[in-house]
Structures are given as structure tokens and as C-alpha cells.
Nucleic acid binder design. Sequence first.
DNA 1: GTGCGATGTTACTAGCGGTAACACGAGTCT
DNA 2: AGACTCGTGTTACCGCTAGTAACATCGCAC
Lengths: 214, 214
Amino acid sequence: MDTTQRTDQQRSADRRRRELLEAADRVVLRDGPQASMNAIAAEAGITKPILYRHFGDKGGLYAALAKRHTDALLDSLRAALDAPADRRERVESTLDTYLAAIEARPQVYRFLMHPAEGGGGADQGFDVGKHSAPLLRRMGEELAQVIEERVDLGPGGQQLARAWGHGIVGMMHAAGDWWLGERPCSRAELVRFLADLLWGRLAAAGDRVGGPGF
Amino acid sequence: MDTTQRTDQQRSADRRRRELLEAADRVVLRDGPQASMNAIAAEAGITKPILYRHFGDKGGLYAALAKRHTDALLDSLRAALDAPADRRERVESTLDTYLAAIEARPQVYRFLMHPAEGGGGADQGFDVGKHSAPLLRRMGEELAQVIEERVDLGPGGQQLARAWGHGIVGMMHAAGDWWLGERPCSRAELVRFLADLLWGRLAAAGDRVGGPGF
DNA sequence: GTGCGATGTTACTAGCGGTAACACGAGTCT
DNA sequence: AGACTCGTGTTACCGCTAGTAACATCGCAC
């Protein structure tokens, strides 16, 4: 039958694709985002043109690679976000989940956040701006949806939820990036700091008196 | 005299350097971060090796270029941050200053945030992670300092201020990036949304009832 | 005039992303 | 059986990049 034939081929191609992605994963995790297509092909035991037949170009490969990790991270975040607990608990647990993820696999994190697409040759027309950090965007949209579903924001709440979604994700990301680089405190402390910020402690704190010069 | 001689030379070299930076600026703003050294040299009316004598490598040129814009942006932010007004007003004016800046010159913004260093050839040893988005880091540290100086955070306030500095900057950045791409609302609205978020409106809002399915 | 240092050039290397052209093995049709 | 197609794989190449070496040239002190 024609269908079974096509299915067989497709299955085989999918398996191959997964193998290639795993090889690419190993190389990217070892060499960083500037891993070359040659190196990836060598790691997979094949040569370049096969990679190009499967993924089109380097951007396609990287997008597929990023999608895997992004999906995995988003799954764990969703679990924390949807837990049956009160809001503060959910916020803290989501922050902690994210920080634990980037702490456990900083290389993956670096790859997702700094794809460093600018290759060498023909990808001149690549629009860096539009493609930048899709993980952040996806997390922002996801969070926005959860906020809109579960928090009563009154009229105009949809735009507000989206702004907050992206804003909170950015806060988490930047603070996490700084924390991962300097490790100035424990993970739990940072979680508390950020949750406190979101809980309005900045507005509630008093002005400092006797400060330097003002 | 030896000193005057050296000073003359140095002055001339500095002037040349500035001219080169301005040419690089034009090209980067036109072609995006993946502008080639050849194109920059051509725009400056010279050839590549001179660029390399002045800036070492592409990273050096880009760092010098980024420093200029970063310094300029930080100056305007400092002005908003240090204004003699109450805290909410200062926060809003700082957010607005930042958003106005990225709105006015999105190309500059793209360049600063997505340097896309991965060139082609020999910069394999480049550590992307360490060099990533220095503007965000500098803004974060700057804001942390202001927070620590002007807000009474009690014991352990220094770490808290730094976490908040980086977190707030990240919030501003991610929300601004999203806003710049989609323009879902006016600048003033976004400023109010984010300030509301920092003012604890997330904690104060009620749970939504009768939402979809939960 | 003569050396010397800065400024500039041309011509090159090595490596990148990406592609065209060719080679082989398995299944299908006649 | 033998020709035909099709997916998989290769080698060899293109145009481009960042970066460098070697050579030319100008201005200036001595």
C-alpha cells in the first residue's frame, strides 16, 4: 500500500532527524552556539549536505534544536504555573523552576538566549531582530495567558496581562542571567527577592534618610 | 618637546578613531549588526587593516561602538532616575525615557541588544556568554546603586537592591522589546502597566472566578 | 639627505555557510 | 533479468567572512 510505504519512510526520516538533533545537541553543548555545521555533521558521522537536506539551513537546525529545549522548559514551567496553590506560592515555584533549569544546564540556557546566528556566508538577509530570543517571547505569551485566565484585572486586562507576562519573564531572565554569572546568593534567596519585588515591596519601602548627599 | 609631540599624535589618532566610529555607526545602522568589516572600511573611505590597527578585532570595534550608545542612554536614564520627584514619578519617567529611546532609534537598540558577534572566521574562541548584552548588565548595576542609595531596604539590602536592579531592567527590556515589535498600546500605557506591576498590583488583584475550566 | 614611525595599500590565508554534481543501494515496473 | 527511479551519501566547489603579512608612502626629526 502506498500509505504504509510513506509512513515507513517518514518514520525513518524522523528517526534520522532525531539522531541528527541529538548529535547537534552534543556539539552545541560542547562548542557553544558558534558550533560549525561541519563539526555537527562530523559528530553525527555524516557530511554537511545531509544536514542541509534535513534542516534547510543553519537557522533551521538551530530553530529545531531550540524548539526541543524550549518545549521541555515550558512544560516544567506550566506545571509550576498551574499548580493548585495560592498565587504567591505559584509565582515562587515558577521562579524556582526556571532558575533551577538554567542552573542545571547553563550551556543549554546560553544557547537558547544567545543563538549568535550571524554565520559567515550567505545568511546576510537574516533578520536578527525578528528572530531574537524566541524562548523569551514564548514564555512571555504563555505567562500572559495564565495571568489573564487566573487573575481578575478588570477592563483592558488582556493588554495588561500581556505586558506583565513579558515584563515578568524579562525580570526573571535578567535576574537569572546576573545570578548565574555572579552567584551572589542562594537560589531560594533570589526567588524570595523577586517575589517580594512583584509583591510591591518596592512601593512599600520607605525613603532612605541620611543617604549620601541628597 | 616629547610630550607635546605625543599629545599631537594622540589627538590626531583620537580624531581618526571617532571618524571611524561614526562611519561604523552609519553602516551598522543601515545594514544591521552583521555589517562586515569591509563595508565599514569602505564607508570610512579606507581599507580593513586600518580598522584592525585601531580596534584590534571586530569585537573591539563593536565594543567601542556599543560603549558610545550605552553611555549616552545611561546618561539620559540617570537624569530621569535622579530627578527630584517622588518614587513613582521617577520610576515612570525612567521607564518612559528608556522606551522613548528605543522607539526613536530601534536600529541602535537592536545593535546593542543583539550584537550577533559570531562572525565567520577566527573568532571561535569568543565567549558569547560573558560578553552578552553588556548594556543590560550596566543598566542593572546602575539601577541597583540608585535603589540602594535611595530606598530603605533594611539589612541585606545590598543584595536585594542588586537583584531588583537587574530584575527591573530585565522587565523593562523584555516588555520594551515586545512592545517595539507589536506596538499593542501607547508608550504611556505601557509605562503605567509596568509601574503598576512594580507597585504590587499583581498581588492586590483578586482571583478570577468563572474563568475557562478551572 | 637619511632614518623612522604612522598611515595606507594589495594580496593573501583559513574557515565558514551553502550548493551542484556525481555515486551507490534498494525497491518497482515491464 | 534488466532498466528506472528515488533516497542517501559523497567530493569538490563557490562566495563570503575575519584577520594578517608584506610592501608603499608621507611627514618629520636630526
